[in-house]
Write a protein that binds this DNA or RNA. Structure first.
Lengths: 347, 347
DNA sequence: GCGGTTTCTGAAACCGATTACACGCATCTG
DNA sequence: CAGATGCGTGTAATCGGTTTCAGAAACCGC
């Protein structure tokens, strides 16, 4: 179907080598020759066979992006950032879902190695680092998100939740809240653990009463069931910090079901600022993490690392900020003087 | 870094050819030989170079999936379905965003041709069919969504919106609505056009008063601004049909801002049933389109078509169904006897 | 015990590019 | 003007597999 380089060569009356050189601008070429070759290329609609090229050069123009699950609204923007950056530089990306399954993760990484990718961004945030050594052993660069310091051939991007969390806590303190609860993410998730610690520490520092700290997973229904437990307890907090926006939305649903009003009775704060956070009713106050930027930085990290002679990993940092919307407000208890009263209302 | 087949061959005391045969199970092999080869393969952690393989066999194990924009919540599930299906059969997928940009679309398709993919699913729903002929000319299978009948090497998956729309209209008629409005998708989108026509026809048939039919684009803000125009008009419809869920959510926002209550004052119906539809306040009544299934069918269509001797495209059909949630209810006018009164309330 | 299969294996061509090396020719240089 | 330099190009090896073809060995039935 498609033509080969030799065809172009004979048609243009030159050798394969010359054609290759013209196409790759890898050597000086007589203008006239170049013109002739390009003319033939255009006529034949020739384009080179990437497989042959990859085989000959020994390197592919592929990068891998490993995520947990594309349906998780955390990822699309990240993917976008990564892909856009890769394409701009002429690279392709192989997107891989682990589906939260470590077995699958292993096979995905295996596949990427076989696919001879140049670098891999592992954005699952799971504590699992398996596969890393195989990757680096094969000379493939790796970049993680929130997973320990950089090493040889592995970079790390740390999302600094501290700032956003500090802002959020300041925000609720200003509003006058005294009773808080935390619904954190799963314990096998490094990011979730970091967030939980920061939240608890910050809340204690400001002397808020922490009526509950529960672990959940990053899904809507988990937020809902966590809240149902909270509502059943004698005293309801006036503000609930959620490990991500999905949990927050589940929490808001469950609160509404229980007849608790947001933000009048209880304020809710999420993390991530997924695209639907502002569409929630009420629009969700949340700590924004720059996900698209995370994607672009991840690619840049790989690209830069692989260009270095001494391929050393680098540490990157990303900041977070509070986005105030309408799911937070002064607690009712301030007006009515009692959390007990609030609870009554809520029933 | 990684070993070659010849290394394995010499280590196992056989020829390259034999190793290849063992690995591909492409020929009968003496059990003893096979054991020896596999042993060496395991020892060396050998895995074959895909580029060499692709070059030699002349075919890749890649498929392309072209979408508009990964951030659009319509797509993640579709991608998931497609990818899962591809992986199950040992294929990889190259995901490509066109970013709603026809120039970009062209270059993406060009890239896929160069990448030597076996087949491409173009799920952008744009009316644009450019690139198709280049694809089929290169022997690459194509599958579209809602874009005319199948041809040689191009299949088509039609989503039958009729059924879902009929159910939706029946639903609002049952509820007693008489005044409707339609906020449709963009006019250069085949699907949007089909939906609008079906909606208008169905509504007319049931003799509802169509106070407005506007074209919009598939974004939240578009839904909002369309509604603002509607609210400014003297008579507010009692039910608004939206071209997709994003529009619907934007519409609900704008309605709320205008002090119109949903569903008491106005009912809203979306299309797609994106994952956030049920998290909207109130949860959105919508016409579900089976997007994950669309993805799997798209892949199966390609796979099947490419296995055929006579590579003929096939037409597939997917049904839609109404999902009733809480954004629809009987119109207030039924109780109060007048749409005018309703409007007053809304101010 | 012999021709005819069948089973297993190896040698070598081939896929379509890249690239090291060599060579011819024009241009400098002293 | 001899020798050095540099430019433009072709030849051929190479990347790491797959596959055709053919040959050796084992097996078969009569």
């Amino acid at each position: 179907m498609s033509h080969t380089m030799s065809e172009v060569a004979t048609r243009a009356g030159v050798s394969k080598a010359t054609v290759s050189r013209v196409l790759n601008r890898t050597h000086t070429i007589a203008p006239e020759t170049e013109r002739r070759v390009l003319e033939v290329v255009r006529q034949l609609k020739y384009h080179k066979n990437v497989h042959a090229r990859r085989l000959a050069t020994g390197r592919s123009d592929l990068f891998g992006l490993v995520i947990s699950e594309i349906i998780n609204p955390y990822f699309p923007e990240l993917i976008r950032g990564f892909q856009a950056e890769a394409w701009d530089r002429g690279f392709d990306v192989l997107l891989c879902n682990t589906e939260y399954n470590s077995q699958r993760r292993v096979s995905v990484i295996q596949k990427l190695i076989e696919g001879d990718v140049r670098g891999v961004a592992i954005m699952t945030a799971s504590l699992d680092r398996s596969g890393t050594s195989e990757l680096t052993a094969a000379g493939i660069g790796v970049v993680f998100c929130n997973l320990g310091p950089a090493e040889r051939l592995v970079s790390n991007i740390s999302i600094d939740y501290q700032r956003g969390i500090a802002q959020a806590i300041e925000h609720v303190v200003q509003l006058g809240h005294r009773h808080a609860a935390v619904i954190a993410g799963p314990e096998d998730n490094r990011t979730a653990v970091i967030i939980k610690q920061a939240l608890v520490a910050g809340l204690n520092e400001r002397k808020l009463i922490l009526s509950a700290v529960v672990n959940s997973n990053y899904r809507v229904d988990a937020g809902a069931s966590a809240v149902r437990a909270l509502v059943a307890a004698p005293e309801l907090p006036t503000v609930i910090f959620c490990g991500n926006d999905l949990i927050a939305m589940g929490a808001m649903n469950a609160l509404e079901e229980a007849g608790v009003r947001i933000p009048e009775d209880v304020s809710v704060i999420g993390i991530d600022d997924i695209s639907f956070a502002f569409l929630a009713r009420p629009p969700l106050t949340t700590i924004r993490v720059p996900r698209e930027r995370l994607g672009t930085i991840a690619f840049q990290a790989l690209d830069k690392m692989l260009q270095l002679k001494r391929r050393k990993g680098v540490d990157y940092y990303l900041e977070t900020d509070l986005v105030i919307r309408r799911s937070t407000a002064p607690p009712r208890s301030r007006e009515l003087g009692s959390a007990g009263l609030l609870l009554e209302r809520a029933r």
